[in-house]
Design a protein around this nucleic acid. Structure first.
Length: 429
RNA sequence: GGGGGGAUUCCCGAGCGGUCAAAGGGGUCAGACUGUAAAUCUGAUGGCUACGCCUUCACAGGUUCGAAUCCUGUUCCCCCCA
């Protein structure tokens, strides 16, 4: 092994805790190992919180190890109490199955499944857990879990002392995840589990179980959670919606914008945690951020790198094109299709084409119809204050009428209120 | 059960019977500045067929030329005494 992954992860700040600080580096450098990270199928897409973990697997693979991505088809049926303050609602089996498929597809795009010995492996713990009978599980696995130790885990302790309590189901969660580790150890010689810092309890439970059941020594590493300088989770937009990896849930443009808007204080950690930029590149970005913050080269690079990783080169192009439009000049001479791609996240409303005929459609009415103003009075104010735009061209006249000559494409008109609130009017026959 | 106070426009909160669509603050929206940031500054903030008109101050009545402001009843809230 010619790459010291522990040194790299340490420099990036990606190591929160390990089960063996002294020997892990040497152990990983001595030969190729199998490493596993689990992903929870609580939705049909992963979000940026999981991006850090996906990248970790990628880093291990690049360093010459074999990554195993586990999708929790079984554990997802139970619900991990770690870091959750309340009991979760159980997902239906159908939606769980759909979620597993969606997540598997995303994982595939981050790892190399065809590179010989270190080809990535994708597993679903439902495949082995389903075969267990309750009695067998209690005898083989449960017997190895002293309840007093389980009660000592943070995830359990915090819930027991709170109002919310904890069901027997969630209490049992750690047995399942612990057994996953043992199973992967048997099947794939997996000796290292990685996870977020909230996974420490589950990981050590697996290590204990492996020792008891198989007499083998395995290891664990946890990464920090992705939080901003104020301690809040990174990966939520200002409106509070999660930033997802799937383009159906979060368009490439919004994804890109999210990173462009990351605060200066958070840009450094994000570059280290999430990108594969070299130490030199990141440090020169740090410098640029300190000396000429207004250029925001860190944020731009971050947006570009991550959008490329998640949405590919076409995603970057789409995000760039949309960015130019959103912050740019007048919108004319586009086709409906182009506008639809650029404004995927923008609300739109259909109006009959006849509204544009004759007198034309009053601007105030247009803004109210589009939902950009609650009343014509409000629309009037916006226009008077210079905050109303049609196709990115400011409208100054309260009595202005819109006709078919104001269409930005065959049938679409782009309205904007203020700096960034957009809405589309689609005129149909 | 007795006594007292209160209910105001998105929120908090002011409001001598006329000059009240209703002070002030918050929030929100727009503008300027800026790094698509933060902070700051400015303006706006019931509706409309808009130099005017209409509907609002818990609800229902009443007094008055005129009521958010006075009277009566109703509902809800708070405080004190039992």
């Amino acid at each position: 092994m010619n790459f010291d992954i522990i040194a790299d992860l340490t420099w990036r700040g990606l190591i929160h805790q390990t089960t063996d600080d002294q020997n892990l580096a040497q152990w990983l450098n001595s030969r190729s190992r199998s490493v596993y990270i689990g992903f929870d199928p609580s939705a049909d897409s992963l979000h940026v919180g999981s991006l850090l973990q996906l990248m970790l697997l990628r880093r291990f693979q690049r360093a010459g190890h074999r990554p195993i991505a586990l999708v929790g088809g079984a554990t997802g049926m139970i619900g991990d109490p770690s870091g959750k303050s309340e009991e979760r609602n159980l997902l239906s089996v159908d939606s769980l199955r759909a979620n597993v498929v969606g997540i598997e597809r995303q994982v595939r795009q981050f790892l190399d499944f065809d590179c010989g010995d270190t080809s990535a492996v994708l597993v679903n713990n439902f495949d082995w857990m389903r075969k267990f009978s309750y009695l067998d599980f209690l005898r083989d696995v449960g017997k190895n879990f002293p309840v007093n130790v389980m009660l000592g885990k943070d995830s359990v302790k915090s819930r027991l002392s709170s109002e919310a309590g904890l069901s027997y189901t969630e209490f049992s969660y750690m047995l399942l995840q612990a057994y996953d580790f043992v199973h992967l150890n048997e099947q794939f010689d997996c000796e290292l589990q990685v996870g977020g810092s909230d996974q420490w309890g589950n990981i050590t439970a697996g290590i204990d179980l492996a020792r008891r059941m198989r007499g083998t020594q395995v290891f664990g590493i946890t990464s920090p959670l992705l939080v901003d300088s104020e301690g809040k989770k990174i990966g939520k937009t200002a409106e509070g919606t999660k930033v997802w990896l799937s383009s159906e849930r979060t368009s490439p443009y919004l994804f890109y914008q999210y990173w462009i808007n990351v605060g200066d204080a958070d840009a450094g950690p994000c570059l280290r945690y999430l990108t594969e930029l070299s130490r030199d590149e990141i440090e020169s970005l740090d410098e640029s951020r300190a000396n000429s913050p207004h250029e925001r080269s860190s944020q731009k690079r971050l947006g570009e790198e991550l959008t490329r990783l998640v949405h590919g080169e076409t995603g970057v192009a789409a995000a760039r094109r949309a960015t130019d439009i959103f912050f740019g000049a007048e919108i004319t001479g586009f086709s409906d299709g182009q506008l639809r791609d650029i404004f995927t996240d923008v609300p739109s409303i259909e109006l009959p084409l006849s509204r544009l005929e004759g007198e034309g459609l009053g601007v105030l009415d247009a803004f109210v119809e589009a939902g950009l103003a609650k009343s014509k009075g409000e629309a009037r104010r916006t226009v008077q204050q210079g905050g109303a735009y049609v196709n990115n061209r400011r409208v100054a006249d309260v009595d202005a009428k819109l006709t078919s000559s104001d269409l930005a494409s065959e049938s679409v008109m782009v309205l904007r209120s203020g700096k960034k609130r957009y809405a589309l009017l689609r005129f149909v026959r």
